[in-house]
Design a binder for these strands. Sequence first.
DNA 1: CCGCAAGTTTGCTGAAGGACAAAGAGATCA
DNA 2: TGATCTCTTTGTCCTTCAGCAAACTTGCGG
Lengths: 231, 231
Amino acid sequence: MSKLDESLLTGLPPFSLLERSQIREILDQALPKRYDEGAEIFHEGHDAERFHLLLDGYIRVVKTTEGGEQIIALHISPGQLFGIAPALNRDTYPATAVAASESLALSWPVRLWGEFTAKYPGFASESYSTLGQRLGEMQTRITELATQAVEQRVAAALLRMVNQSGRKVEEGIEIAFPVTRRNISEMTGTTLHTVSRLLSAWEKDGIVHSTRKHIVVTAPHRLVVLSGAQG
Amino acid sequence: MSKLDESLLTGLPPFSLLERSQIREILDQALPKRYDEGAEIFHEGHDAERFHLLLDGYIRVVKTTEGGEQIIALHISPGQLFGIAPALNRDTYPATAVAASESLALSWPVRLWGEFTAKYPGFASESYSTLGQRLGEMQTRITELATQAVEQRVAAALLRMVNQSGRKVEEGIEIAFPVTRRNISEMTGTTLHTVSRLLSAWEKDGIVHSTRKHIVVTAPHRLVVLSGAQG
DNA sequence: CCGCAAGTTTGCTGAAGGACAAAGAGATCA
DNA sequence: TGATCTCTTTGTCCTTCAGCAAACTTGCGG
C-alpha cells in the first residue's frame, strides 16, 4: 500500500500544531479503511481497540435501548475524531458507529492515545476541547427534549445537520448525507410518522424540499423561527 | 485559618494515588468555603476562574432555558470534582451550580489545573474517567427522555438519587438532600403537578414515603420495575 | 401568634402526538 | 421485468400529560 499523503492531516484541529515530521510519524501508524453506507465501524459494548479519525463521509453514533429502539447520539463529520473511548479511560465503546454515507477513516490502536497526548502538544488539548463541545451539545439536546415540543426539536435537528454538513444547491442548502424520516425520529425522540407529517407540512409551506433520503432546506430562517431559536 | 487536614483528600478518587507531601501541597493551595442551602457556587456564562471539589453536602448543576425554565443537568456528591471547565478548555462555566443542602467545598484557580494534571500522575486520568462517566450519564438521560414515558423517567430519577445519596433509615432509604416536586420535574422534563400525582400514587402503593422536600423510598425494587430497568 | 411565602395536592379540560393500519412510491435484485 | 424491500404518506383513534385553577399545608419572619 502506498504511503498516505501528509496533506490529509495538515490543518485538522487535532493536528494543527504539529510539524511535518510528526504528522508523517502519526500517519505511518494509521490504518486507513473505507466503509460502505450502512457499514459498522465499531459496536456498542465491544472492546475499544482503536480510535478513529473521519477523513471523508459521515458517521452516525447510535445507542440501542433494551427495547430495541435506536437513538442517534451524534453525527461525525470529516476531520473529527470519534470512538475516543481511551480519552475517557473506557475500555469498551459506549455506542455503535455506522457510516451514514460511504466513508473513509483512519484508525490507531488505543495504546497510541497515551503516546500521542504525551508527545504532541496540542493533541490532547484539542481532543478535550472537542469532548467539551460534545458535552455541550448533549446538554443542549437534553434541554430540548425536556422543554421543547416535537416540532421545535425536529426543526432544531434539521438545522443542526444543515450547519454541520450543509452544501449549497440551487434551491437552498442540502444535508450532505442520506437521512430517513426514521433517522430524524431517532434524533428527536419521536416517531417517523410525526416527522413525515412535519416535513409534508413544511414542504407545503416552502420551507424544505425532500425526496427519499435527501432533504434540502429552502428557507433556513423560517426553520430557525420554528425551532424557538436561542442564539 | 488553621491548616486543612490531609485526611480530607486521602482516598478520594482524584487524589488516591498521591503521597502525603503531594496532598499537603495541593491542600495548601485550596480555598475552602461553606455554602448555605440554595447558595450559588458559580453562575452559567461567568468566567471559569476556579475548579471545585465537594467535601460535604450536595450540589445541583442547573441550566436555564431562554424561556426561564430550569433543567437540572447533574447532581454532585461529596468527593467529586465539579466546575471543571478547564479540563475541556472552556473559559466560562456552562451551567450554574447551586448548593442543594448546606455544603462545603474546596476550590483552586484554574491555572493550577494544568499543573495538577502534569505533576500528579493519576489526577488527569481520574478526572477524565469522571468526565467519561458523566458523558455516559448524560447519554442515558437523553435515551430516557427520547424513549420513556414520564412515570418511568421519574422512577429512574428517584433511583438515581437514591443510589447516589441514599442513606438507610428505618422505613427504607432516604434521599440525603432536600428535593422538591419541582426539582424532580426539572430533572425529568415534566411538570411538578405530574410528579406530585405520581408520588401520591406511589405513596398509596407503599413504594415511597414523602414529606415536604424529603423522600424515603420504601420499596426500591418496585421502583426498579416501574423504571423499566435495563441493568 | 399571625400572615405570608413556598411547597403540595387534586380536579378538570383539551391538545399533542403516539399507536395502529393501510396503501403508494422508489429502489434493488434475480 | 417482475418481485420484494425499504421508505414515505396519510388517515383515524385514543392515551398521556401539560395547562389552568384553586385549595390546603408547612415553615418562617416579623
